[in-house]
Design a protein around this nucleic acid. Structure first.
Lengths: 366, 366
DNA sequence: AAATCAAATGGAAACGTTTCCACGATTTGG
DNA sequence: CCAAATCGTGGAAACGTTTCCATTTGATTT
């Protein structure tokens, strides 16, 4: 079946293609007579604009590129949903690229997407301080906005939460519950700035209370590897009573691994995750975690990018810090040998969901 | 920064744009001298083809549309990863659309994507028997392939598993373990053909063994709703000892809901899911499920579509049935009041992972 | 040395659209 | 009632490619 073009519509309506374009786009004057005929012709022919022709002429495609590490972590899936929703509202489409926590792949993804005349980019990079993709975006003055990444330096525009602060809060919370030996569990430590920021936040908390520096356990997603690593951890530091996982998926997996090692959760070991994916409250035990507004991050970043596109400029270089929230869960309790439950005030009961809003939230509206 | 075009390269290399195109695409003869100069010029200018111009001329975009209900169910995320990987191998990109289990949205998504000159489509529809999107694809002769959907009728091309058969197998397995009253838990029953197929497979199993027809419990993803529904179920049928959830996410959520209702898993109630998402083996209890090759489905469907594109025809109208596999888990055990554990042979221990390959697998190569 | 042939090359059209510009027709103001 | 302004309209260029076709060049055969 042959594609119907603007030319076919013009022929049927008995006018020029210029007129058809003006009528259908409402981009210029036209007589009522012509308007009616064009609309009718388009209807009967079932005409749809060819976006490729349009993009070529306009030098813009009404398409946003989205680059994330992977889609199998629900954190990113959530963000993508937010991005997609927000983009759709403004008539934009999204083109997705997966970069697998790899800076080279981020660049490569970006380049192929840029060849498609994309108008803007929403992305998460592995390391914001050292990103080929960001360099390229700056160089070409493409409107973009980071999500999840927190930019320090001359700073790229980003919508994020304060990872270090959140992690520090988690640390303080654990310490208050009596934990004196905490381990930090990370995937992608070398390739994820967020893992590092979270670790340093936790370290700050231990430093301030004068307890031992958290042990850093690096793992990958292989289940066996996780169990081995944890087993080694407990040989090295038998007194570890709390594990802070750099993300929820890892926290979830740790439950299983710790159980295999014969540890009781939370009686012997507490677990806290990060990201607040829905699953954490669906499983048993429910996982204590830092809830971050993932959908909202996507939504906000997208709005900023689209706004920049419309005003024909880059996204203003300022980070938007969103509030986070600690969510307790069954995976977390006091280190019972140190702090008997009945001595604690009710607000510290792990079953109640404690709220903790980021105090450093900058206002989004500048 | 101005975009560099093939014209710039031609100017620098001192030849025509036709020659540049031929060299860079290796699509025609060229002298070594010119080849060298063009390559060099492209290199120094950092030239990249503008895919929009290319698509317009070629009348094809090297892009596949992918339409799925949602990305927040890992089943689809997995499939997308497979599609993306397979597409990338052949130099194709993917454009993603979410349709939220809604036939109208499927069509709308498809239409916007088709306006982008996509070359083919991989999709999952809510109901294959009654799909506007499929109608449209057939009408416009666009190469496409379904995944997850199982087509009965004149049959659209699809890569899937035999849902009814798998569900029947689960039913038989449950019955063999002594369960006499089974409930089927479904989301999207009205809008998902797969839920219906799975339910009917289960019914077939109960029918064959002469036990009561499974109770059908329809829920949505709201946690409260799930708990309420299950609570009503047990009032109505107190003897239900096994719950078969139409997908793993639901099975996961049921664990939590059942615990809240004071049910012990699996001592009082067994749970089986469907889809085999990674999470099922990460949580406690591990969830018994039907493992389906989600990534592989995406990969295969994509390969079929790309093959069809290359040969300038539609995908051959024949379903590819992939094998599935039952994976036992801690959520599943015998109905202890009926079948004491020690009476069972070792192979029936729920901890061992039983394998069950689909016997009806059709060969892919026709 | 003339004739034949193959290889290399560039001009130009085409893909589907938007938009600038110019032109004729109509309306407005003096 | 004429000049000026306004409106509606269509022709044509442009966006960046690929590819057909004709032409030029150089090599090979008679």
């Amino acid at each position: 079946m042959k594609k119907v073009t603007i030319r076919d519509v013009a022929r049927l309506a008995g006018c020029s293609i210029a007129t058809v374009s003006r009528v259908l786009n409402q981009s210029g004057p036209s007589s009522l007579e012509n308007k009616k005929r064009v609309l009718e012709a388009a209807e009967t022919l079932n005409f749809e604009f060819n976006e490729v022709g349009r993009s070529l002429q306009r030098q813009s495609s009404k398409t946003l590129a989205v680059i994330i590490p992977t889609i199998s972590n629900p954190v990113f899936a959530d963000a993508v949903e937010g991005i997609q929703a927000s983009a759709a509202e403004s008539g934009y489409r999204i083109l997705l690229g997966f970069a697998n926590y790899d800076s080279e792949q981020e660049l490569k993804s970006l380049e192929t997407l840029m060849a498609h005349q994309i108008d803007g980019v929403v992305l998460t990079v592995s390391d914001v301080e050292n990103s080929l993709a960001i360099e390229r975006l700056e160089q070409d003055s493409v409107p973009y906005c980071l999500i999840f990444n927190q930019s320090r330096n001359p700073d790229s525009p980003a919508v994020c939460i304060d990872n270090a602060l959140a992690a520090q809060n988690v640390g303080e919370r654990l310490i208050k519950l009596g934990h004196k030996d905490i381990a930090f569990l990370a995937v992608q430590m070398t390739s994820s700035d967020r893992s590092r920021q979270r670790y340093s936040g936790l370290c700050e908390a231990t430093r301030l209370s004068g307890i031992a520096k958290p042990d850093l356990v690096e793992v990958n997603y292989e289940p066996d590897n996780l169990e081995d690593s944890l087993s080694r951890l407990f040989i090295k530091r038998p007194d570890v009573s709390a594990i802070f996982a750099s993300n929820d998926m890892l926290a979830l997996a740790s439950v299983r691994a710790l159980r295999s090692l014969g540890k009781k959760i939370p009686e012997e070991v507490s677990i806290v995750g990060f990201d607040g994916i829905a699953l954490t409250s669906l499983v048993h035990p429910t996982i204590a975690t830092v809830f971050t507004p993932n959908r909202e991050m996507g939504r906000r970043a997208t709005a900023l990018v689209i706004d920049a596109i419309k005003n024909n400029r880059k996204v203003t270089h300022q980070s938007v810090m969103l509030p986070f929230e600690f969510r307790s869960g069954q995976s977390l309790t006091f280190n019972q040998t140190n702090v008997p439950m009945h001595r604690l005030s009710p607000e510290h009961r792990p079953s109640s969901s404690l709220q903790m809003k980021s105090s450093q939230t900058k206002r989004a509206d500048k």
